[in-house]
Design a protein around this nucleic acid. Structure first.
Lengths: 277, 277
DNA sequence: TTGCTCCTCACGTCACGTGAGGTGGC
DNA sequence: TTGCTCCTCACGTCACGTGAGGTGGC
């Protein structure tokens, strides 16, 4: 039982070094930080000032997020900060990569959160009346289609695939028919972009100009959109507006990235452009 | 052996879903994604379109870095993106925290890399001659001391502890004695700051004004600095300059954050202010 | 006897990847 | 027989943390 004042039991040394007792035992096992002395009778570990120095180096390197394997190599091969430059640069690159991944994840999360939060606000505010308002201009990537309305999902997929990271905001659909058409509807799937980029493949980038519109938010599944259209058209006639094409449907809340969700909670804003006179 | 065209073997389904066969087996074991059918004779797993839908949801949630445990809970409890808001916000916070940690690590790495790289440049450039130059102004946190030069380390620790994250650049020491003093030297340990902040405790923040100096970079251990001083003083006299106080020592490379390093490779720039006339 | 400090050993973490060894049908 | 696809089971990863069960001296 050495009572040498230079030697510290594992508990004392844990206090001094700031490393946990468990960590110290683990480092011993891994050969990273051997006690200065081990009592053969009790197997008690004893540490000294040199151990403290080494413990400090290990702790610093751990703060820089080096793995124990890296640390072992560094302590074996380096004796000067200059020798560390390569390892530091590799570590910097590795962490930069993880941060990059994390940033993408954060952006995706923020997008879903923002859209869902706004949809919740709209749903709660109960703005389900006809409104007359100016719709601001927006840059979109658009994919023109002919067929059934339900196929517009394919159009959005195409746009998303081609334009990837430029996308922002909620998808919308432009309708070029003056009337309802079952099988040969004429429409365009659009997704707003952060900025105007070049058109690619069959995806056309352009600015949708500002328009004065009569709008209505519809809550419910898409097959019931007809009701909202009727209400809008009736109101337009009553107010004496003449309508123009294309009309827009903005999907405030629809099938999401994760869930299809409950169609009863879908929110769609219909925008009918009206004559500015 | 079902040859139902709706059913896919694990290999086929792996292609379809983009999940590895190992991952699919693991998700089965965890109850996260059960095959639509398991052949009792062969234990072969078979998946269908509903499996594909669930696999897609799992893959999306994994991209958002949710744990399998979180995903299981989400799939059990949520059926609409709106139900996900809380989980998304928690996830966002968790990733933001990790990014914050990573950013600190990166900054620490960048600092060491930059300083060491510059020290290496200086050492290689062989600029070990007396120079006459203007030293730019710098904001520093300073701790005044009296005693032995070797104790300046304590001064730097104090400054670092009090000023923490404001620090930048290389530490320096101001000497107020016109001559060498063994035990009662009069000096000030300084570390540059990013910007001027309030003085705290005994750490004084101020701007060191620009000075015209005679400088010399010394390579080697601190006890040998005397040689460099003699060389500088001789040269000052030869050029007819009158010297002023305090003189500065800038530690371009000294004991590092990790290693004490080899004193033979320490680099110290001595700066003697000279009369501007 | 109780409390404290130390010890070893086993197990858990997280989401799989890497084999080893074996089967069944073409 | 060979090759392919599937199966289970065991082990490894990374840096410890969490016990369980035991010891030795005050």
């Amino acid at each position: 039982m050495p009572k040498d004042p230079q030697l510290f039991s594992i508990g004392e040394f844990s206090q001094i070094s700031g490393l946990s007792v468990k960590a110290l035992r683990f480092y011993d096992e891994k050969g990273l930080l051997k006690p200065a002395h081990v009592d053969p009778a009790t197997d008690y570990r004893y540490y000294n000032a040199a151990s403290a120095e080494r413990a400090r180096m290990i702790a610093r390197l751990r703060e820089l997020q080096f793995s124990l394997e890296d640390i072992a190599r560094i302590l074996a091969e380096c004796e000067d900060e200059a020798d560390l430059l390569g390892a530091m640069r590799r570590q910097h690159r590795a962490i930069a990569e993880r941060m990059h991944e994390d940033r993408r994840t954060m952006q995706a999360l923020e997008k879903v959160i923002a859209q869902e939060a706004e949809a919740a606000r709209v749903a709660e505010s109960g703005r389900f009346d006809v409104e007359e308002k100016r719709v601001e201009p927006v840059v979109v990537a658009a994919f023109r289609m002919k067929g059934r309305y339900e196929e517009c999902g394919r159009g959005f997929s195409t746009v998303a695939r081609v334009m990837g990271r430029h996308l922002t905001g909620r998808p919308l659909c432009l309708h070029y028919d003056g009337e309802y058409r079952e099988d040969d509807a004429n429409f365009e799937a659009c997704i707003p972009l952060r900025r105007e980029v070049a058109s690619r493949d069959e995806v056309n980038v352009r600015v949708l100009e500002a328009r004065h519109c009569l709008t209505l938010v519809h809550q419910g599944p898409y097959p019931q959109l007809g009701r909202a259209y009727r209400k809008l058209l009736t109101e337009a006639k009553r107010r004496g507006f003449s309508l123009e094409l294309p009309t827009r449907e903005v999907y405030l809340k629809g099938p999401g990235m994760i869930f299809k969700g409950n169609p009863q909670r879908y929110l769609t804003e219909i925008q009918l452009p009206i004559d500015d006179q």
